[in-house]
Design a protein around this nucleic acid. Structure first.
Lengths: 210, 210
DNA sequence: TTTTTAAAGGGGGAAATCCCCCTTTTTTTA
DNA sequence: TAAAAAAAGGGGGATTTCCCCCTTTAAAAA
């Protein structure tokens, strides 16, 4: 009996293509494809649709990979989640792992690595590449996970667009003064003095990719 | 006789997966896969390796999609290039089309659209989605004269550091008001509204590399 | 050589950003 | 459950940035 896999990705071409690859592997079958986390949870209402493993993208509309993985961890702890994303910043990767992902595949993954990762997650419960391990180590050294809060991260990404703080506040559904609070606290703890400095920080830490 | 296709993408998993999809289409065969533009040009030294169509990613190491497409246009004008990228800004899409790409596929492409695009490029010489057409129209309407003076270029580079304009003026040995002049003139002709916008422009145009 | 154009600099006001110090509410932790 | 910490929001002033409209001087074109 083969292991069942579900691919969740809003990127049609990718989910179809990756599904095709997985179907070729001899120990795996693709159960179905989903466009976002909500679609996956809806599917799970029928126990027949619960797979052994979910290949999960992170950036998705409606319900993203992190939230979805958290829900799965709570309600379906036996389903393994393997994050599979084009390119994300280290903070996002960290969040995904903390949410319960058993591994994280990067954009430079080869076909046989994907197969190896799938097998290892099924058999050993996890698969971490060197890159991911390095990020984990760095996060412990720098203890960045306590340094930058969720909302602050969201703010940083918006601060890397040409929006004014007023516009950012509207986008984040909070007051202008709250946004100023995020900014001031970041400037203080990162030792920067203006928005350009914040943007440079974001770029150097892969929070924002131009 | 089927049409031959080459996929150029530094993202292994993707190039393999997309290659797999294309191989399924009845009129197309995948000749080989490349990790970047240089690898493709090296391959082309043997005439047997010259395909009918290249599916080209834009952001790649060593030799990117734009530079590669320009070289192909010059040396191998019969090879059709179809840009296939996850998500890029308008300016990049425009550069790719100007470099000679016959079309541009976005991230929300479905399998059958890919097939349709491949066929159209082979048969009609081009395939433009609505999104791409819209960008093309806008670029004609705007037709910004992107002529950037020497001093302005120097200013842009300094504006990408966390210096204030006063500090930039000191660095450039000119008055604060002159620096403001450079800024105002750039904002006007580039259609941007603040320093973050200028920095984004600088990055997209390789004036500043973070 | 005159005319036009561009570069450098300036005035001044409006808006945005930066910086501290403060309160209230919610959440965590001991 | 009480104490501590974090999140959200605010006041207010200093500074910087943004945006027009203006003058002088140097360079280029007619």
């Amino acid at each position: 009996m083969n292991y069942s896999v579900v691919v969740v990705d809003d990127h049609f071409l990718l989910s179809q293509a990756i599904g095709g690859l997985v179907q070729e592997f001899k120990n795996f079958d693709v159960l179905y494809l989903c466009k976002n986390g909500q679609e996956l949870l809806d599917k799970f209402e029928n126990p027949k649709n619960i797979p052994d493993l979910v290949l999960m993208d992170i950036k998705m509309p409606i319900l993203n990979g992190i939230e979805t993985t958290e829900k799965l961890k709570k309600d379906f702890p036996d389903v393994k989640v393997l994050a599979l994303s084009i390119e994300e910043d280290e903070y996002t990767i960290l969040k995904m792992l903390r949410a319960g992902a058993k591994g994280y595949l990067m954009k430079d993954t080869k076909k046989d690595i994907l197969e190896k990762a799938l097998l290892e997650v099924i058999q050993n419960g996890q698969y971490y590449t060197n890159t991911v391990s390095k990020i984990l180590m760095e996060s412990i050294e720098k203890n960045i996970d306590t340094e930058i809060k969720d909302k602050e991260l969201e703010f940083i990404k918006l601060a890397c667009t040409d929006m004014s703080y007023k516009e950012i506040a509207e986008t984040m559904f909070c007051s202008y003064k709250t946004v100023e609070g995020y900014r001031d606290s970041l400037y203080k703890k990162l030792g920067i003095k203006n928005r350009i400095g914040l943007m440079l920080f974001a770029i150097h830490h892969n929070i924002f990719t131009p």
